[in-house]
């Protein structure tokens, strides 16, 4: 079947989609957006987290056909398009992405795209720096096997603090 979906602001079409296929598969294998990662395909790890109509969800649990006519934002869509030159660390990155780099919250990086989207959603709905309990609760469905999470919490606090300082909201 054919699926029409707006991804990162651009209308896109995927053809020959199998009816039981996930949105994650369509994004990665048919639309060339490998940002959202495929790790468990059962909703347990959060590495496939994307926004669906503004709400963070596990793309592996959304049937492709359910995304028909809806809006998806992946980690690729968070970066600011003309924010800097290629290869320059920090150039074009969203605040949350930049904070992950600055805080050393990325090791192998497999969990990072999902965590960035989920953290982005948390900060979009908070004023100032959320209490640790709220950060932990928000990230409870995102597994990381490398960092031990401390640097990830640092990154979220850093992004929140910078955001509060600059007075902006996601």
């Amino acid at each position: 079947m054919r699926v029409n979906v707006t991804v990162n602001g651009r209308p896109m079409t995927a053809d020959d989609v199998w009816e039981g296929e996930s949105l994650l598969y369509v994004l990665r294998e048919r639309l060339g957006l490998p940002g959202a990662k495929n790790a468990c395909e059962q909703g347990e790890c959060g590495s496939c987290t994307v926004y669906l109509d503004g709400t963070p969800v596990c793309a592996c649990l959304v049937a492709a056909g359910q995304a028909e006519g809806r809006e998806v934002v992946t980690v690729e869509g968070l970066a600011v398009p003309d924010g800097g030159s290629d290869g320059e660390l920090g150039g074009g990155l969203d605040e949350v992405q930049r904070a992950f780099v600055d805080a050393g919250a990325v090791q192998c990086g497999f969990c990072t795209p999902g965590l960035v989207v989920q953290a982005h959603a948390l900060l979009a709905g908070s004023d100032g720096v959320p209490p640790d309990a709220d950060i932990r609760e928000a990230l409870a469905g995102n597994l990381c096997r490398c960092t031990g999470y401390e640097k990830i919490l640092d990154a979220v606090r850093l992004a929140a603090a910078r955001r509060a300082e600059s007075g902006s909201r996601a």
Binding site: G20, S22, E41, G43, C58, L61, A63, Q66
Partner: peptide
Amino acid sequence: IQGGTDVMVEINLDKGR
């Protein structure tokens, strides 16, 4: 299928089609 949080797990893990 609604949220798919049960249905899609079954399909992804090929536990039933």
